[in-house]
Amino acid sequence: MENLLQQIVNGLVVGSVYALVALGYTMVYGILGLINFAHGDVLMVGALVALQVATLLHKFWPGLHPLLILAISLGVAIPVCMLLGYVMERTAYRRLRNAPRLAPLITAIGVSFLLQTVAMIIWGRNYHSFPPLFPTIPLEPFPGVFITPVQVTILVASATLMVALIMLVNRTPLGRAMRATAENHRVASLMGVDTNKIISTTFILGSGLAAVAGVMHASNYGVAHYSMGFLPGLKAFTAAVLGGIGNLGGAMVGGIVLGLVETIGAGYIEQLSFGLLNSSYQDIFAFVILGIVLIFRPTGLLGERVSDRA
């Protein structure tokens, strides 16, 4: 029982990171109908930039308070990623907005690999470990169930960000413009919405979230690496589809559900498959779920949009 509770805690932590990344996917998809394949790599850039800053600060200013180090490194990583998102949209995706449907996706794959290669050039192939900022002694809220301070921070921060994003989209003029653009570009621009600006803003917001998620992901596992963005990106996409792509609430639900299924599944896969598979097959869950959802319920759990794009 403790084991199951522990898995649930871990699943929630992993899932909230997925949810943050999934939000970026779903926002862009909702507005452009584009799967931004490079989104996972934005996460990677965020993590590596933050790690670089944190390491430097740690080295040259050892007495600095961990929270301050975290704040500064986030303060660098988020704008860098936002800029990256903006540049990506501006240089690669904007010209392809009316191109045949395979073109933007292929470009996005290219951008993804380009980012990985550049990161490999800058940071090399090795795993970089995050400097230990927080005390690593885990808390024990229930007997036998452990949660580290980092994980608590991840849960609180992602919940806050998600609420903030929902408020932004539903309560502000910018949010209304975003929803209008998602509904119909042309009509939105007739109503006086600068759709180009809104699309850029969407990319910037999504990339900012990805940067935060990257820092969380890296500090949760303690390492960062040039190809670390691939799997979380793919899983977050799965989460977005699971929840119903284009739907913000769906992305959050999808992320949490996927995180839970994955960690609990990995914990019990050996029993489930009679010892045939073990936890090194953990990554299969996301793909299998993705396949099942797309085949049986392509609109996702909370989906409203029709996913059958011509």
Partner: peptide, 28 residues
């Protein structure tokens, strides 16, 4: 068979997943 109904980008992601599953199995 399972991906018949999918189009374009969804198809791409599911086939990517298929490729990864095959690789994970061969590696384990």
């Amino acid at each position: 068979f399972p991906v018949l109904r999918l189009r374009g980008d969804y198809l791409a992601i599911v086939t990517l997943g298929f490729g990864e599953i095959v690789r994970i199995f061969m590696g384990n």
